[in-house]
């Protein structure tokens, strides 16, 4: 085939492109994923616990703040990663640093309390639930985000997959937090960030396969 023939093929009756098409596709996928994740939470775990005291509410707000800020940061990267071009590594490092600081804070909080309570603080009755539920609730958002990314043009599929995993994991954690606030801040940091990291790793692995174009 001659290249000129191809150009006239591509350039005949070109459909106009809607502005903000990419952004709208991604945001719609994230919103649909979040809604699906919430529904899954309500279906499997039932209605959220009712508030009994002020402390539970406070922890819930801290937890939601943590997960929702991860969602927001992740979506911001997602919009960058969906376009061809280099992804700046700096913001990724920033998220890593924030997580590291959170971990250090968690360890600090542990050391400031009595060693006898460590076990209860870290391995409360819900740790296994966190580990299982967060990736489980992340499944649907991950699917919808990957589906949207496949229509775009990520030139670093591994990174794009990792970021999709981050957003999905953070959405899963949000859904879980909405159901039940955790027992303590160190618990939350360990058992939220851990499963989210697992989602990021799985996302990176799948991304390099699923996001080729």
């Amino acid at each position: 085939m001659k290249t000129d023939d191809l150009i006239s093929l591509l350039g005949t009756h070109t459909e106009p492109v809607k502005s903000n098409h990419l952004r709208n596709t991604i945001l719609a996928a994230v919103a649909a994923g979040a809604a699906a994740s919430l529904c899954l939470m309500l279906l499997t775990l039932g209605a959220p616990e009712t508030f009994s005291g002020g402390e539970g509410l406070g922890l819930k707000i801290v937890g939601l703040g943590l997960t929702l800020s991860l969602v927001a940061a992740g979506v911001w990267f997602l919009l960058k990663a969906a376009r061809p071009g280099k992804i700046s590594r700096k913001p990724v490092i920033a998220i890593g640093l924030v997580s590291f600081v959170a971990l250090v804070a968690a360890i600090g909080l542990l050391f400031s309390s009595h060693p006898a309570t460590w076990g209860a603080m870290l391995f409360g009755p819900q740790w296994a639930a966190c580990l299982l539920c967060i990736p489980f609730f992340a499944l649907l958002p991950f699917t919808s985000i990957i589906w949207a990314l496949r229509k775009e043009a990520p030139t670093s599929p591994t990174w794009a997959g990792a970021i999709a995993g981050l957003v999905a994991g953070a959405l899963g954690a949000t859904a879980y937090t909405l159901h039940q606030a955790s027992m303590s801040i160190p618990f939350m940091i360990f058992w939220y960030l851990g499963p989210i990291l697992i989602c990021v790793a799985i996302g990176a692995m799948l991304g390099s396969r699923l996001l080729r174009w």
């Binding site: 502005s19 990419l22 969906a82 376009r83 061809p84 071009g85 030139t155």
Partner: peptide
């Protein structure tokens, strides 16, 4: 096919280069 991924406010050359390199 992926022309909708071009950011209208960004320069064109890095976008083309990224796709060509990919």
């Amino acid at each position: 096919v992926r022309r909708h991924t071009y950011d209208k406010s960004a320069p064109l050359t890095p976008w083309v280069y990224a796709i060509a390199r990919y």
